[in-house]
Design a protein around this nucleic acid. Structure first.
Lengths: 127, 127
DNA sequence: TGTTCATATAAGCATATGATAATTTAATAA
DNA sequence: TTATTAAATTATCATATGCTTATATGAACA
């Protein structure tokens, strides 16, 4: 395969369409990529943070455990909508529940969650 | 408004539908919620991390600056699809570009990005 | 100046996702 | 048991989003 050398002294293939211009960079990065399943899980985790309703729920729960109807009142949203998002968060084990009679209290399930919220907010504030 | 007292000694309103069961908890949390605009920005930031293609791009760029066609080869995706996601990331100033002749190199624009990726991955690995 | 090639953009389509309304479940109290 | 009430579930609809194909830019170089 014909190769030329760029001014940066990396080998460069002739076509970019299929194999890229910098084969070594590609294979180096490729070797360092986590398994596909990890990256999918990671995207799924961030996806849950990537919705205005859910981020408000998470921020609220980072301040205090709350029941569903309190969240409805706080967010000014209908109960099924809130329950639906809580279900998503619970399935991902981002929040956990505690029942007290008819009332179900939700809270954060993990300290990482708070760190992610704070780190994200730091980024926003420095823009 | 009639109030009763729960076994947790917080005042409890009679209906949950409109105003929630724990008015003080609601107003305490409400006071601590960031402005709506911040939360929207925060959700938008996480939303960009919440896609498998973009997270792979970000992880790759966290290892090395890369041009578009190298990313295409690495991710085994068509060029317009990759360019489209790069555009989203660039608009949010998560990645930046550098042109060298016909080739445009992309790289991470901010150190927070790497921290967020790592913190997210930590969370995944401890589940 | 005209060709080549890396990248960007536009239009169209299919899927994913979030909200609503209606209904069901589950726990308590009468 | 029956009524009440907090929460969950189901069905439906509208919007958002990501990929594809086709086309357009724009820089380098003959």
């Amino acid at each position: 395969m014909p190769q030329i050398t760029s001014r940066h002294n990396k080998s460069v293939s002739e076509t970019c369409e299929t194999i890229g211009i910098h084969p070594e960079a590609i294979s180096m990065v490729s070797a360092k990529m986590p398994d596909s399943s990890f990256l999918i899980e990671l995207a799924d985790l961030f996806k849950l943070f990537g919705d205005n309703t859910r981020i408000r729920i998470l921020w609220a729960l980072s301040e205090s455990e709350m029941c569903v109807c309190d969240l409805c009142a706080l967010l000014e949203m209908k109960q099924p909508a809130v329950s639906h998002q809580l279900k998503n968060l619970k399935q991902a084990r981002i929040v956990k529940t505690r029942r007290e009679g008819k009332v179900i209290y939700y809270s954060l399930d993990d300290t990482h969650i708070r760190s992610l919220l704070n780190l994200g907010m730091e980024h926003i504030q420095e823009m």
